[in-house]
Design a protein around this nucleic acid. Structure first.
Lengths: 211, 211
DNA sequence: CTCTCTCATGAGAGTTACTCTCATTTCATG
DNA sequence: CATGAAATGAGAGTAACTCTCATGAGAGAG
């Protein structure tokens, strides 16, 4: 128990791959891709965690060690952190909604270039499987809180105020709605444009109607 | 009780109470209040559906017949429909956000007057139990769609357009955020005011900051 | 009032996501 | 190589659902 944790290997150590870590990352990926493959051909509900485990050549226990819920296998992503970092790194003078726009476009471009199938499947699952959608909303709420910090830092507002919370959450919700819309329409429209339109609504309100 | 025996069951009676329906309603309420009572004293997670069934004097099967999920017992409400009707019945000239404000205030007043304990407990559960929160979001999404219809009818916009969807959903999300804020702060602030502030943010954007 | 016919209920078995515990194996380190 | 820590596997256990089938209680027709 004692000082073990604080031992030598942590003066700086940003690049410490660690031979053990490799295996963990590989296992993680194995589980994920096993899940995606099975879900693609059988559907989400008919795919059991046991099947995923078998295909990934690990035990069911291990699957739950890596992902707290079945939905997380599909919902989780390693992209959130770098993107939020990128957001924080944007020029301070830039209006923060523009920063968000920029980062969103980057994210979309990245996802669609590197893993187009997976990206579309995820959007479809979000649309069709309530549990996945729910989980996605929940994790997005988390990134929303982080986003609030960033925004508050930029604007000088209190990140804990109701106003900032509501605004950030409506932004998040709007982007999710854009994603659902995208999937609903068979991914035919440009996702980045949809996201832009969603942000517009949040910023300037909806296009004027009669009343 | 007396008049029940009277000659004709009902003079006009557009709604047909039906002696059988009564029992269903009573069962429904029995399950709900059993759930609330048990949850209040044991917490949500430690309360099983079996316990709820026992206390409501029905079988577990019946509980699931009435409520598709455990969360629904706590999340569901009979108030949504009348409130949406009331919204639709508002004067056509009134700006629709004002209509929403009005209806929200009514809903809050009603809930806090008639079932203050339950209302607070629900808000607390939404805050503390992820599953309940998730389910609430899901059902709110449903009422959001209905709301979109109403709004679209008022404004002449297309209820299926991305813009209307995003705007309505951000409104819903904002109100939910207000509810969470309310619960987080021990229900100390006036909920109707919080809702108003949330709607303000959606309508006019957040208070101006530096950037 | 009685005979159906329908529909709500109860009972029970089955599935599956998840939790916990403990023994074993695998890697890191001195 | 030896020792300690961390990852894995195995297995038992829980609880939320799902399905099916038999029974009982209401509604309506005669």
């Amino acid at each position: 128990m004692a000082a073990v944790t604080g031992a030598s290997p942590a003066p700086d150590a940003p690049p410490r791959p660690g031979l053990r870590e490799r295996k963990k990352i590989r296992t993680r990926e194995a589980i994920r891709s096993a899940a995606y493959a099975l879900i693609e051909q059988q559907g989400y509900d008919s795919t059991t965690v046991e099947q995923i485990a078998e295909r990934a050549e690990v035990s069911p226990s291990t699957v739950f060690r890596y992902f707290p819920t079945k939905e997380d296998i599909v919902v989780t992503d390693e992209y959130d952190e770098p993107l939020l970092a990128e957001l924080a790194a944007r020029p301070a003078g830039e209006p923060w909604t523009d920063s968000v726009r920029y980062v969103i476009r980057e994210a979309v471009r990245l996802a669609l270039t590197e893993r187009p199938e997976t990206t579309r499947l995820r959007a479809r699952l979000m649309l069709e499987v309530p549990a996945v959608r729910a989980r996605m909303r929940e994790t997005l709420t988390g990134t929303g809180r982080t986003l609030a910090e960033t925004v508050a830092g930029r604007t000088g507002l209190d990140p804990r105020s109701l106003e900032v919370r509501v605004h950030v959450m409506s932004l998040i919700g709007g982007l999710l709605e854009a994603t659902l819309y995208w999937a609903e329409h068979g991914h035919r429209e440009d996702y980045a444009d949809l996201a832009d339109r969603a942000i517009d609504v949040i910023e300037h309100g909806p296009p004027a109607g009669k009343s």
